[in-house]
Amino acid sequence: MQRARIFLPGVGGQGTLTATTLLARTALDAGLPVTSGEIHGMAQRGGVVESTLLIGGYKSAVIAPGEADTLLGFELLETLRALPMLRRGGRVVGNAEALQPVGVCLGRECYPPLEAVLETARGYAAGVTMVPAISLAEKAGTAKAANMVLLGAAAACGALPFDLDALARSVEKYLKPKIVALNRKALELGAAAAQAGQAA
């Protein structure tokens, strides 16, 4: 049985929890047992949101520091902050574009440049894939589909225990019909970007 511990950091309004739910349903449809949880959730726009997804028979939804197989980062600064959750040799798939958190907007924190995040991430991970999720989502039809861009990228680089086709089936099965086409397009654009090795 394939097993995976996925840690998903982001900020409210990015669809982090929607993505977690879709991944969980995709795993269940593949016959894989799933445990998921929201670790810290101020899900209003701008608040930090972290969720976990454990696939393959784990009893707890908790991922301790150094345990995550995959870090699926929806926001650049939150990806950087979450790197200690990753196991050595794990994989990072993240959004290369900034969506500044509250602390940065208020001037309490500085925003890291992409290159600094990449350099740090490479110190933790065996593989790092960063895609311009917001820009690609806008190409698909709406910036709100950035979460699907990331899922497509993660599937394309082997960071999930199922493939892009399984995700596409879940989009068709579980999302509202009127948004299926653009979300499928977002998956495809994310996958293509990951395969092309885009870093920004």
Rank of each mutant, 00 (worst) to 15 (best):
C110M: 12
G141S: 01
G127E: 02
E119H: 11
V171G: 11
F7W: 13
M148P: 11
T16G: 07
L167V: 02
Q198Y: 09
R91V: 14
R81K: 15
T21V: 12
L86K: 02
R3E: 15
F7Q: 06
G197L: 09
L187V: 10
S135N: 10
R91G: 03
F162C: 06
A68D: 12
A19R: 07
S135F: 03
A4S: 15
L28H: 09
G47E: 12
A19I: 05
L23D: 10
L76W: 05
E38L: 07
A121I: 02
M85K: 15
V93H: 08
K176T: 12
K139H: 11
Q195T: 06
R122L: 00
Q44F: 11
V131W: 08
P132Q: 05
E115K: 13
K185C: 05
A98F: 09
V180L: 05
A126C: 05
A146G: 04
C110P: 01
I179D: 02
L136Q: 05
N183W: 08
A166S: 15
L164N: 08
A30M: 13
R81D: 08
Q2S: 14
M1C: 08
G107A: 09
A145N: 04
Q195N: 04
G141I: 04
F162I: 07
E119V: 07
E78M: 05
Y174R: 07
L106I: 11
I55A: 10
R91E: 01
L32C: 11
M1R: 14
I6S: 03
Q100G: 00
S60N: 13
A137G: 07
K185N: 08
T26E: 10
L182E: 12
G141H: 07
I134Q: 12
Y124I: 03
E50L: 14
C157H: 10
L189R: 14
L22P: 06
L77F: 01
L114Y: 03
G15V: 11
D29M: 09
L167D: 06
L86H: 00
L175P: 04
K176V: 12
Q2A: 15
L28W: 04
A154T: 01
K185L: 08
A154C: 03
A126S: 12
I6G: 06
T21C: 03
K173I: 06
P9V: 03
L83C: 06
R87L: 00
I63L: 01
A98Q: 15
L182D: 10
G56P: 01
L23V: 02
T142K: 07
A4F: 00
Q44W: 10
G127M: 02
A194G: 12
A155Q: 11
L106A: 15
G66F: 09
E50N: 13
R108N: 14
A82F: 08
L136N: 07
R5I: 06
V128L: 04
